[in-house]
Each structure stands twice: as structure tokens, then as C-alpha cells.
Design a protein around this nucleic acid. Structure first.
Length: 163
DNA sequence: GCCAACGTTGGC
DNA sequence: GCCAACGTTGGC
């Protein structure tokens, strides 16, 4: 069956520091599922609450790494829910302004990790004309969740999976 | 660990 | 609602 345009799958790039949580870590999680908690930026939050849908696909980006780059892909497997780390006093993501009654921060669940055969470094991304508009390549772009076009997603995937 | 870029906070 | 100070991100 054909999906309505409003239900069209969207594509994202999500940054994580692999020392903290890597794509390999996601693969090792029970059910290969993890909450994408700790997002404390309104623009990134709004992407999760307003635009992300279950089934959207994600370029899984390792930042602050050696080298940084796209390690593989994952999928949004649960829609946004209040981020429980915000009201956990022991969490580094604790935010007293967020409460269970009035949550300020939200998180989606990611799963279905697929590690690329080829890690696509930031340097390599820069060499491809088709990828020049990717936000992650823009100077000073710090958003931890970024939209990518279907074309960019497919292109990076092809690079990552080719032998 | 440096530092440019940029988001957030808070005094006014 | 301006904007300086401060904090964070993330490549290098």
C-alpha cells in the first residue's frame, strides 16, 4: 500500500560521542533499543516531538571521535516521550525545571542498528559534491539532531555499505 | 586542551 | 527585549 505524503519516512542525523554511547553499544543493548535521552536543546527537542515518526531512519554520527563520522544507521522505534533523565537528580542531564507533571524535555527510542561496512569519516563526507549541503559539514553547526534529505541519506548509506 | 561558534541566561 | 557574560559543542 502507498503511504500518504504526510506519513512519508523522514531522515535524520543524530550525533553521539562514542565514548559515551556508540552504535556498537546500541547493538549490544537488550532488544537493541535505547532511549535517546539527554537532549537539552529546544530545536533538537522539537524535531523529536514534532517531526520524528516511528520508522524514520537515522545516520548514526560519532562526534568528538577519532575520527568523527557516520558509523551506520538506526531507526526511530518509539515516538517521543518525556525524558526521565531530566528529573533524575543523579543524572548529569538533571533539570529541575522539568518535572513528571510538566516535562520540558523529551526523547525518542532508537533501535535496529546497522553498522556500516565502511565508517564514513567527516573528511570523506566533505569530498562528495552530493553531500555539500549536509548541515553536519557546516561550520559552527552544533545541533545534535539534524534533518537530512532522502538523497543524502541514500548516498551516505551507499558509501557505507559498498564493498 | 584550545578556541570559534553559537545557545542560554539574567540584569537592566 | 537588548545584549554581555557565560556555558557548551565539537573539530582540530
Amino acid at each position: 500500500m502507498r503511504s500518504a505524503p504526510s506519513a512519508a519516512r523522514k531522515y535524520w542525523l543524530m550525533k553521539t560521542e562514542p565514548d559515551v554511547f556508540s552504535l556498537q553499544d546500541l547493538t549490544a543493548r537488550p532488544g537493541q533499543r535505547e532511549l535517546w535521552d539527554g537532549v537539552r536543546n529546544y530545536q533538537a527537542r522539537n524535531f523529536m516531538t514534532n517531526d520524528m515518526k516511528v520508522g524514520d531512519l537515522v545516520l548514526f554520527y560519532h562526534s568528538n571521535a577519532d575520527p568523527s563520522g557516520v558509523a551506520g544507521i538506526a531507526e526511530i522505534i518509539e515516538p517521543a516521550l518525556p525524558d526521565p533523565s531530566a528529573w533524575d537528580k543523579n543524572s548529569e542531564y538533571f533539570d529541575p525545571k522539568s518535572t513528571p507533571e510538566q516535562p520540558r524535555w523529551f526523547c525518542v527510542a532508537v533501535g535496529k542498528p546497522q553498522l556500516f561496512k565502511n565508517f564514513i569519516s567527516l573528511d570523506e563526507l566533505r569530498t562528495h559534491a552530493a553531500l555539500q549541503e549536509m548541515l553536519v559539514l557546516k561550520r559552527g553547526q552544533r545541533l545534535s539532531i539534524q534533518p537530512v534529505t532522502p538523497q543524502e541519506f541514500d548516498y551516505v548509506c551507499a558509501l557505507g555499505m559498498k564493498s
